[in-house]
Nucleic acid binder design. Structure first.
Lengths: 125, 125
DNA sequence: CAAGTTTTGACAACCATTTTCGTTTTCGCC
DNA sequence: GGCGAAAACGAAAATGGTTGTCAAAACTTG
């Protein structure tokens, strides 16, 4: 793992929620790094390929990334204000998705599940 | 509902799976319509605002649309080859998502659930 | 230090989507 | 049927996230 890739991974780990590539680029530059935007994208792609970070799309189509604690398949509960994310697991959902697929004769079934809301902290204001 | 919007809605209804705005534009032009790309986007936005069509994002970030049979909240089982979509309902998932959100103090909880796979027909080939 | 390989980053290219803006169509009203 | 305002339309340009290009920089190895 090259130095730049480590820097991106670290910047991601330092933040609690999902960040976009552009966000991370801004973070790194703000910290004095001379990294380029291209490299941030490359690092994120490599990290997601190797399973070190999770990727998902916002409703606006922007890709956002997060360094996750567990390596297992899991989903997220994301605050739509501060974008803090909680990792959640749902055995029931996994089973349900597999079952639905099988019922309709589908093979190679995968699924995406993301839950959005406003977290307790942000609900106060 | 204007004529153009009807045309877009009809083109969408005529197809069994999810189509992108660009796909629909190509379809309509192929049918001899002189519709513009701008109008297709506007029609789709209006249709999704009024709840007449469902929108979701592919993994590549492209927005895809579908005219659905029921007006209720539901999800889809989409073939990743021919993009045929089956409407599915999962009371269990709805409950699960609401519960998870509540457990973590989140308010205004919403969720996105999409299931992808290869349909029986496309699995044959 | 030299030659070869990998990584980097400024910049241009892409592509879906949105905005702009002048033109056309629609619709209510005479 | 004719008129004018308002809405709809569409071509072209702008936007913005993401990817491709390519030469320079950094690292490796002999």
């Amino acid at each position: 793992m090259s130095t730049r890739r480590e820097a991106v991974h670290q910047a991601l780990t330092a933040s609690s929620g999902f960040r976009s590539a552009q966000d991370l680029y801004a973070d790194l530059r703000a910290d004095g790094s001379k990294i380029g935007l291209t490299t941030v994208y490359r690092a994120l792609q490599a990290l997601s390929d190797s399973g070190d970070v999770d990727v998902l799309r916002t409703d606006e189509g922007e890709a956002v990334y997060r360094a996750c604690d567990t390596e297992n398949h899991h989903h997220h509960l994301v605050c739509r204000v501060c974008s803090t994310a909680v990792e959640i697991e749902g055995p029931a959902v996994e089973r349900w998705a597999a079952e639905i697929g099988a019922q309709h004769g589908f093979t190679g079934v995968t699924h995406t599940v993301e839950v959005f809301g406003t977290c307790a902290e942000c609900s106060k204001g």
